[in-house]
Design a protein around this nucleic acid. Structure first.
Lengths: 204, 204
DNA sequence: CTTTTAAATGTACCAGAGTACACCAAAAGT
DNA sequence: ACTTTTGGTGTACTCTGGTACATTTAAAAG
């Protein structure tokens, strides 16, 4: 990555601090004031320099600044935010905006394959032997196919469940990792929504 | 906290998502477009409602929106990076730079009390009945005291272990959540390094 | 010693963005 | 039946904010 001049570093830090404190990026005029510069145009040129050096991204809209370099970025790029799916509204695809409760950060390491990811709060204790407890969050890679023995999220009768997928010559079924639960042999409409690739638990 | 109407919730989520994706808040016009509303003024009124209900803060500048409710708030404040402690070098305090392997992001929700936090990779299966498996990452709130039945990280003989702390009138000991393991009655030098407040698992 | 680059000033332009006002319509209380 | 709340439309106004152009100064590079 290219090097920055003193003044550019100063500006970049100022932008980062501004986003941190106010919650939204500064305008050029505001930056000029803080830098004791009397013309917005000087800021414009500094920002263009930062953009061309890859430290910043700029949209040509009001306050359209986005910091790229993780060194300066508030909330660095080692983390990825995925939507937390709340109650699933019947009829909507699981990733529809209607179902998104909020976004949560997950470690980048959980993201391996391509595709969309989401998180889901686990209900019930049907997977305790796989170390998945009630109220855990599972991180799911959205896909509609999975391999034998993978832990998946499935949609049956407008309800989401986390189970282990078992496929053999004879049949396909969903296995609970808890002897107290019976296997589920899906009938009629059902679909695989994704593979569980991670788990997040808050311990109180 | 007061309740929101459906439309208000929808708007708040949209704002959060916009900040998430673009890095800066949306303008009223942009919100109107996404909500299929033809007048900015409707947005203005919804936003004023959100402000007066305490979910949002508004500056009268371009894109001057800031989400208050952490339930919805995206961005830096929802994410915290904690050091992942690798092999613990004997003699160094556990949080010393020497032991830090890298930093990993954890959800804000895991951070409740004050103090420093770190993460630790679990070795062995002595806590499987607590849903803590080998190679899981536990998130730990650094402290040197803990209450009865809390899951803690302890340092015994220059080794870190995750166990459940049991204190009663007679004695203090460390309990494994796996019948195959005996309780540990610490002798000599040992210390509590922190309480386990969260767990992160990558599933392959 | 000249050229280049970084840094800054000042004026000007126009679309973007927040807001005020008047008005409409359906749903929910009372 | 009436009123309030919620959700929406359209126009208009003003200041904000990004950008363009012309010009200047100082320091570094050649």
């Amino acid at each position: 990555m290219k090097t920055l001049t003193e003044r550019q570093k100063e500006l970049l830090k100022l932008i980062a601090r501004n986003i941190e404190e106010k919650g939204y990026p500064p305008s050029y005029q505001e930056l000029a004031n803080h830098m004791n510069i009397k013309s917005k145009f000087a800021i414009l040129k500094h920002i263009d320099a930062l953009v061309s050096k890859g430290f910043l991204e700029k949209d040509s809209s009001a306050r359209g600044l986005r910091i790229i370099d993780p060194e300066y970025a508030p909330g660095s790029k080692t983390e990825v935010n995925v939507p937390l799916i709340g109650r699933v509204a019947a009829g909507f695809p699981i990733l529809a905006q209607e179902n998104v409760e909020r976004y949560i950060p997950i470690p980048r390491a959980m993201i391996k394959s391509e595709g969309r990811y989401f998180a889901l709060k686990v209900r019930g204790d049907s997977m305790i032997n796989a170390g998945i407890f009630e109220d855990d969050l599972v991180v799911v890679n959205s896909t509609n196919s999975a391999h034998n023995k993978e832990i998946i999220v499935a949609l049956l009768n407008d309800e989401v469940t986390v189970k282990r997928l078992i496929t053999n010559q004879k049949q396909v079924y969903l296995k609970a990792e808890n002897p107290a639960y019976d296997d589920i042999y899906p009938q009629g409409e059902w679909s695989i929504q994704g593979k569980v690739v991670g788990l997040i638990r808050e311990i109180h």
